[in-house]
Design a protein around this nucleic acid. Structure first.
Lengths: 210, 210
DNA sequence: TAGATTGTTAATCGATTAACAATC
DNA sequence: TAGATTGTTAATCGATTAACAATC
């Protein structure tokens, strides 16, 4: 029962497989081979098999995997068969966009309350109530919230993150372009748009001469 | 003059350095050592030095780097000292958020027009006009646009991407969770929120037992 | 001078890819 | 049976880290 450590790149690929498998299922397919998944997503087939293996999925030579079972394995592995409640802090453009988007519920997360300065409280965006940030800690305790989402400006990110951890938050999904300094047991994932802009800019520059 | 190929991880770190350096400059610092940058951002100092070296920046033993010069080197290297115009397709929650956000201009990109179905055209969001998508190709040609941003639903992403490349777009910044099938000379960068959600979910599950 | 810092070369590490045996 | 496909073990590759010489 010694669980091998799962490489982060593997975890990042799993949602891509899931997405593709669900589409294939909708198209009426019942089984699928790792090779086909690999080709569709431009990944080495041997890599796909290794990734599948982490989730405990088993295939049958010459036939492949039952799509249903494979989907279930991946979802269970990611814990996407349960929905975990989350709080969001920073109801600006991006925060509002996340609140208005319901797609995350299929990916194990549901934003159940949002927070910002008192002037913004009382609103309801996409069915989610906005509260003054002073209520954060108390509500985290009461609702046993584990995930915090930061969509505030970079200047406030550290302060908010510290407040979140203080309140009992265990994992932070950070959209602010700022390195967060937190105890190492806190799970932090950054969505960094600037890093991909850097790649685009640099490659375009190379492609078209300086 | 043989330019070594720059690792993608290096390119992704450069904006983080830039961000930190600009803050240090605002705080009144004139010089900075790679070691200090490394510590602040939790990166090995030797890694920071290698990354800096790619940009052509040179430091002085015992003193470090001139912050101004370092910033300039990184910006030039990324081509962030020029602003490249971009078109966005898909004015939903996320698209609207990007339009309302002006911070990208400091990162070499400016959204100058948005596109969606005709019913959404005519609006103005964050100072950017929304057009019917049928005008895309003509306007790309006229305005010599190179960068396309996809913030449409996943179902339409491939179709839009193909249309973009058809129109002459050279680089695509894709926010839709769908693998795009395009000629390999087209530069594609995906912003994949689900991949980071996968990491959070899986780590939380491990931390709190299944 | 001594020591902080740079920048390069070598060693390590981990992920990807290739090779191949097993099996339905 | 033959061949497609699985799944594992070994080889490769590239990024990170460590070691160290150079220098102000």
């Amino acid at each position: 029962m010694e669980a091998k450590k799962v490489p982060a790149p593997t975890l990042r690929r799993l949602p891509k497989y899931l997405n593709y498998l669900k589409r294939m299922k909708e198209n009426g397919n019942v089984t699928i081979s790792a090779s086909k998944v690999a080709e569709a997503l431009d990944i080495q087939h041997t890599q796909v098999r290794k990734d599948f293996a982490y989730t405990g999925a088993e295939g049958v030579p010459k036939i492949g995997h039952q799509i249903d079972e494979l989907i279930r394995c991946i979802e269970t592995f990611l814990n996407w068969d349960n929905v975990t409640d989350a709080f969001l802090v920073g109801v600006g453009h991006l925060g509002g966009a996340l609140l208005g988007y319901n797609g995350f519920q299929e990916s194990g997360i549901k934003i159940v309350a949002a927070f910002d300065i008192p002037e913004k409280s009382g609103r309801n965006i996409g069915g989610v109530e906005v509260y003054g940030v002073e209520k954060f800690k108390q509500m985290v305790g009461r609702m046993k919230i584990k995930i915090g989402i930061i969509t505030a400006p970079a200047d406030h990110a550290q302060e908010i993150a510290t407040m979140m951890v203080d309140s009992g938050i265990q994992a932070i999904w950070n959209f602010a372009p700022r390195k967060l300094d937190l105890p190492e047991e806190v799970i932090v994932e950054n969505v960094d748009m600037y890093s991909s802009l850097a790649l685009i800019s640099h490659r375009l520059k190379k492609k078209f001469g300086k």
